[in-house]
């Protein structure tokens, strides 16, 4: 019974929207990492992580967000996180993700945040 997880990536203008569907744990986190790396390799530095279908995340998945964020921000991009279900939000909050990442209500709000504040302000 492998961990169910898939990623669908689409584009809104110059922004990559990654829909995370299922569970990110130590088994599936490498696929999440590869997907972000593929966007960066293609020159896409603006990423929205749409978590509406993300039902579970462990530290392995949180570590993927953390490992890329500095590099992405240094090149003028950002990762905006949106549509987080309460269970996943609780995990983000234990580690203080809300202080490091822009976490917004939905994809339109994330797009708007890129327009207003390309990189999260401290």
């Amino acid at each position: 019974m492998p961990t169910p997880f898939r990623i669908d990536t689409s584009r809104i203008d110059d922004i990559s929207v990654m829909v995370l569907d299922g569970q990110v744990d130590a088994h599936t986190a490498p696929r999440f990492e590869e997907a972000i790396q593929a966007e960066l390799t293609a020159g896409h530095q603006r990423i929205i992580a749409d978590c509406a279908k993300l039902t579970y995340i462990s530290s392995a998945g949180l570590g993927v967000f953390m490992s890329f964020i500095e590099e992405i921000r240094e090149s003028g991009g950002d990762i905006k996180i949106c549509s987080v279900i309460p269970k996943v939000q609780a995990t983000f909050e234990i580690l203080g993700f809300q202080d490091i990442f822009d976490i917004v209500a939905d994809v339109p709000a994330a797009v708007q945040r890129f327009r207003e504040s390309p990189v999260k302000e401290a």
Partner: peptide, 22 residues
Amino acid sequence: KLDRLIAAKQSGGLGMRLIKAL
């Protein structure tokens, strides 16, 4: 702290931090 881990490009200890909090 989280920002120091990010700056050091490390994620060490996140799992145990979660376990202790949970």
